[in-house]
Design a protein around this nucleic acid. Sequence first.
DNA 1: CAAGAATTCAAACAATCGTTTAATCTAAAC
DNA 2: GTTTAGATTAAACGATTGTTTGAATTCTTG
Lengths: 223, 223
Amino acid sequence: MNMPDSTSIANSRAGTQERILANAEVLFMEHGYEATSLRMITKEAGVNLAAVNYHFGSKEELFQAVLTRRLDPLNLERIKMLAKLEAQFGEKSVPLDQILSAMFLPALQLGRDPTRGGQNFLRLLGRAYVDPAPFIRQLLSQQYGEMINRFKGAFAKALPHLAKEELTMRLHFVMGALAYTLAGTDALKLISTINPAQPQDDTLLLRKLAPFLTAGLQAPATE
Amino acid sequence: MNMPDSTSIANSRAGTQERILANAEVLFMEHGYEATSLRMITKEAGVNLAAVNYHFGSKEELFQAVLTRRLDPLNLERIKMLAKLEAQFGEKSVPLDQILSAMFLPALQLGRDPTRGGQNFLRLLGRAYVDPAPFIRQLLSQQYGEMINRFKGAFAKALPHLAKEELTMRLHFVMGALAYTLAGTDALKLISTINPAQPQDDTLLLRKLAPFLTAGLQAPATE
DNA sequence: CAAGAATTCAAACAATCGTTTAATCTAAAC
DNA sequence: GTTTAGATTAAACGATTGTTTGAATTCTTG
């Protein structure tokens, strides 16, 4: 009788599933995958311990669900944005800063939107980039594969002076700086003590990153 | 009677301690801190399980020992190299690429030297950069604090057009790209399939990174 | 309302974790 | 050779891990 939302599937299910996902996202971000126990998650979510295995199957599948829920739409958005730019510029190559903005802007918007995970998810993503767990590496490569290849083509067109191998490496550096930037407020404190009183402007960091990477990508090719 | 090496401390001790450190380095790198158990380490090292607690006190202290053993000399070398450059240029600022080389060259040499941990340790270090564990974050900040501040001064002198905050962020990006580059051969495969047959030239990656970062650091300041 | 599927629940599962204990062994000191 | 401190060992500690079970409960469907 009660129908809290308009989904066609059972809604009592959506309630606990959503609570698990939301709390797992935060806890995985704070402590990492291995150091986060299912008991921490279920306790924080206010659901029974067995609920994770019932709804998701295993801890690994839960992590996968946490990641793909946000990552799939994000990467689709990026690809759509790039496609629009490519259509707009036709035969000409899309300018470098606009390619980069197609990568960053969707992530920026997601970071500002708490209903889509916000900053929490971006940090979780940054962590996952360097997690050694094989199932995470495999998950990321299949989640990112298509998006990266599409962008790689656009970059190659915009940077014709670069050999294919060198371009690959530079994209690697771009991803690294991006991942590291997303990964942590903590890490910032390592370099210097940024005024902790002033509210952290997360978008500022990413807006400063784009010019840095643009210049790096445009650097002359090495011999 | 038997004296296998010239250390003044008991040498049977140095044997197991060294075996533990060496194997822990590899395993921590492969699986991360949390996912590596003391039983994996002691079994691989061929020593008793209790040996870790006896010689190092705890798992955390073992990890600390693994890190500082390589990191202390590395950062000292970097500082010494920078000091030499600063003495050479006197009042003038040290050129940007030479500052960067003072950061990278010692790491490069360490990566090529298996007796100092080689590529294994560099990857472990890259992982530690983004590990959420508080004791790792604290350990790194006290290990890196002095070195980073010294280099920050040199960078500020070489890039007078940058506001202090912007410079801090750019150094953050530099560390990110470096950490990510060090962290993984795996991560490379995420971006593109680099010919797996050809033996991976680890130094190539770092030599390509320097021009990229130099250009990024020299980018005009944002408004 | 009754039948049945879907979900939640407390409890226990076997396995593994880091750490500690006390006995055994080694090797140098007197 | 005896003593003594240091190192290694097997075994067990209590706690926690992810997962499973079967009964209790809730919800949807006829």
